[in-house]
Amino acid sequence: MDLDQLPRNRSARLRAIGGEGGFRRRLLELGFLPGTTVRMVRRVEIGGVIEVELRGCHVSLSAHEARIVQVDPVQAEPVQVEKP
């Protein structure tokens, strides 16, 4: 599944980061690495942007460009990211 298709509040494991160039390397440096867990926080349709959480950090990225990131959803139910 492309990262931008991930439903809100669902988590997934990153499978592969395609594409090339600076944008791809920036994603890698921000921690978008194969095996990392990401959660879809929200999508802002008006701006064409998705916000995801990974390694405890929130990152916004263009939804269209986020398609270079392939993910495998890990759970069917919305996940409780953490318990107090």
């Binding site: 944008f23 916000e51 916004s60």
Partner: peptide
């Protein structure tokens, strides 16, 4: 323009 990637 570099595609948007930004910490929130």
């Amino acid at each position: 323009p570099a595609p948007l990637v930004m910490q929130m």
